[in-house]
């Protein structure tokens, strides 16, 4: 299929070169096409022009694909993302539990003489710290049938049970016909962690590139490593390891302006204005200078785009040429010269 693709690309290029010159659609028509506001009879001739005009395709693509370079992926679950929902959920749970315990309700319980003492309690103050009681686990024999009775007022109104016994003990109790209690420590809430982290640089999320590799763990979650071109300081890029809260500057080569960036895992490729490519395989600790050449003349045009494909192929674009390498930049193939 790949070679059939080359045949098609070759014939489409020839067709484009020899296509009858039709006037470029104006911005108004292109906008209407992009916004799907054209009638089919008006749409057809524009599509025909676009099929044979690389510049107009580029314009349409720029207009319709104008999202910021990097948008933090929805799949990412970071503390920054969850801090407020978690705080709200914790508050809601606490409120619900307190209110629930204030009102006597019918619950499945055990006779008072065997009623367990609450072990996991929340202090009546505003503190969210769960205070486990250092008592051992008690397992008492009891007749296997439970009765539905009003819950005994074993807990002060300002206290609430936060955590049920661990499932394994519940299971054990059910299997052996016993009731289990535990003093196992519950979760500890840290109020200071809910304070908003420092603000990220204004442009960090707009221009950063999120690393999609497994840089932090071998889980399927996305890494919080961000990369960003730094237009204020030539030859440098900025990185953030905490999802954009803090940024540090990485100097790559101060003699050139860096124009394009692509990141996959620990691998980073950066294109410069003089056609030089910088490659790091260790998350930016070390950089290799890659000279892009078709064997005769090295590339000296600005590299406006770098792209890493899932198969490891790297594609770069200049204003007039495109290049591809399948061996980490050792050899390059110039494709579809305009």
């Amino acid at each position: 299929m790949a070679s059939f693709a080359k045949l098609l690309a070759d014939r489409l290029t020839q067709r484009q070169k020899h296509a009858a010159a039709t006037p470029h659609p104006d911005a108004d028509l292109l906008t209407a096409l992009a916004e799907n506001r054209l009638a089919p009879k008006d749409r057809r001739p524009i599509l025909a022009h676009l099929a044979d005009c690389v510049d107009c395709r580029e314009i349409l693509s720029l207009v319709t694909n104008d999202a910021p370079v990097a948008i933090p992926a929805q799949a990412s679950v970071s503390w920054r993302t969850l801090r407020w929902p978690l705080a709200i959920a914790a508050s809601a749970l606490l409120t619900f539990t307190v209110l629930h315990r204030q009102t006597p309700t019918n619950v499945i319980s055990i006779p008072p003489q065997l009623a367990p003492q609450p072990q996991l309690e929340v202090a009546p103050t505003a503190s969210l710290t769960v205070q486990p009681k250092p008592a051992p686990i008690h397992v008492r024999q009891k007749e296997p049938s439970f009765k539905i009775i009003p819950a005994p007022a074993v807990v002060p109104q300002s206290q609430a049970i936060l955590s049920p016994p661990p499932p394994e003990l519940e299971k054990q109790a059910v299997l052996s016909g016993t009731v289990a209690q535990t003093d196992s420590p519950g979760d500890r809430f840290l109020p200071q962690a809910t304070a908003p982290p420092p603000a990220a640089p204004a442009s960090a999320h707009s221009f950063g590139v999120r690393s999609l590799g497994l840089t932090k763990s071998k889980t399927a979650s996305l890494s919080n490593k961000f990369w960003s071109l730094d237009s204020a300081s030539p030859g440098t890029v900025r990185t953030s390891d905490d999802g954009g809260s803090h940024w540090s500057t990485v100097r790559v080569d101060s003699s050139t302006e860096l124009l394009s960036l692509a990141v996959a895992g620990r691998e980073v490729w950066i294109g410069s204005e003089h056609g030089t490519l910088f490659h790091s395989t260790d998350n930016g600790s070390h950089w290799n200078i890659i000279v892009v050449s078709d064997g005769a003349t090295p590339l000296t045009q600005p590299i406006t785009s770098v792209e890493i494909k899932p198969d490891g192929t790297v594609r770069i674009k200049t204003h007039s040429t495109r290049w591809i390498t399948t061996d980490n930049g050792r050899t390059w193939l110039k494709i579809s010269p305009r």
Binding site: R15, A51, V54, N65
Partner: peptide, 30 residues
């Protein structure tokens, strides 16, 4: 290629010639 519908030819040119991704082409054509 000449017999193709204009939109089909645009899809092919965008995919095989311009090397655009499927989502980019999708956004171009709605």
């Amino acid at each position: 290629l000449a017999d193709l519908d204009a939109e089909d030819r645009l899809v092919l040119a965008s995919y095989y010639l311009d090397q655009r991704t499927l989502s980019e082409i999708g956004r171009m054509l709605g």
